[in-house]
Simulated scan of single mutants.
Amino acid sequence: MLVTIIVLFLVSLAIFARLTRGITKSSTCLIGKTAIITGANSGVGYQTALNLASRGCRVIMADVANLEKSKNDVIKHTNNSNIIAKKLDLGSLESIREFANEIKRNETRLDILVNNAGIGSCSSATIDGLNAVMQVNYFGHFLLTHLLIDLLKKSSPARIIFTSSILSFFNNLTVGNLNPGLDTPQSFRNQLQIYNNSKFALTVASGIFAKKLQTAAVTSNCVHPGLVSTYINLSLLDETNIFVKIVVKLLFFMFAKDSWTGSQSIVHVAVSQKLEHVTGGFFVDCLQFWAPGGREDEFEEIWRASEEFVKLGPEEKLS
């Protein structure tokens, strides 16, 4: 009897979750606009590129993977040939700077920056000596956004969107563990905690970008795309036992979104005219949600430490 009740409860929750998924209703045309999307080769990044391209946007797809097939698929499905594919390795500060310099040389505007790329777990450090999950998910986007700020300001009103996660609420982030070392045990729990911290760091950065850019007509918001069936999320299970894998994969089957649905909140925050002046927000299913909290002085410490980790020059820092 108890098992039946639990099963019915979970099925009801799954049905409710599917019926309440946010789908953007915005029909904003983006002809004449330019967007950069990191992690655009697959998953929600690819679906976001597909959506923005279908609105006439010039889309710069950025990824560490080969983008040629994804770019051609976007062109084929949208009949928009104004699609650019560029290599971007967020695990390399040098690659990020090269990418940003090329963008500034060749692009006259940047209206939308979608900081979407991410990884679920990694047991090695990057070439820069940073924790790989923290660098790809957070530090890399922190640096990239700084390097493209002038172009965003020039194109204002412009928007910055960070793909965060509801898991950011379950963080223990401090300046002390902002860059966890390789001596951190590679357990599922620790890897998940680093992932949660990386997503929380994005919300911290987004909030401070929002404040610093208030007078520049550049907004900064975070989005939780939902539980999406992607390799990034499932890779967190690599270090777990078989029982946990079965349970988690069952939950994914019942509650996870596909990539198109997962992209909808990102697209909504990127294009909705109703959100033109909304900044510093955290969005779930196309609705503004409360953001994970903390002390402002701690946030400022994390920001300043991040500036040092990514080696920002004095002229690159936001006042």
Rank of each mutant, 00 (worst) to 15 (best):
E296F: 12
I103E: 15
M254F: 07
A132I: 02
Q193D: 09
S124W: 15
Q193T: 08
L19N: 04
S187H: 08
H146F: 00
K311C: 06
M254T: 05
V133L: 11
L50E: 00
H77T: 08
V64R: 13
G140R: 10
D73P: 15
A210T: 03
L148N: 13
K317T: 10
S265K: 00
D111C: 08
T34D: 02
S164V: 14
N190Q: 08
F139H: 07
Y46P: 00
L144F: 10
G313M: 14
S164D: 07
A40Q: 13
S220K: 10
G129L: 15
D89W: 12
L192E: 04
A217W: 00
V278S: 13
D297V: 15
L110E: 11
D111Y: 11
S156Q: 01
T78W: 04
F289A: 09
K87Q: 14
F299Q: 13
F252N: 08
R295G: 12
F200W: 07
I96N: 03
F282K: 06
T261W: 13
M1H: 01
R159L: 14
N72M: 02
L236F: 01
M1E: 00
Y138H: 04
P180D: 14
I208N: 11
E308F: 00
I160S: 04
T38F: 15
K211F: 01
H146Q: 07
H146D: 03
E276Q: 08
S306M: 02
N82F: 06
S92F: 10
S272M: 01
A14G: 03
A35Y: 13
I103W: 12
S319C: 11
T126V: 03
R295I: 12
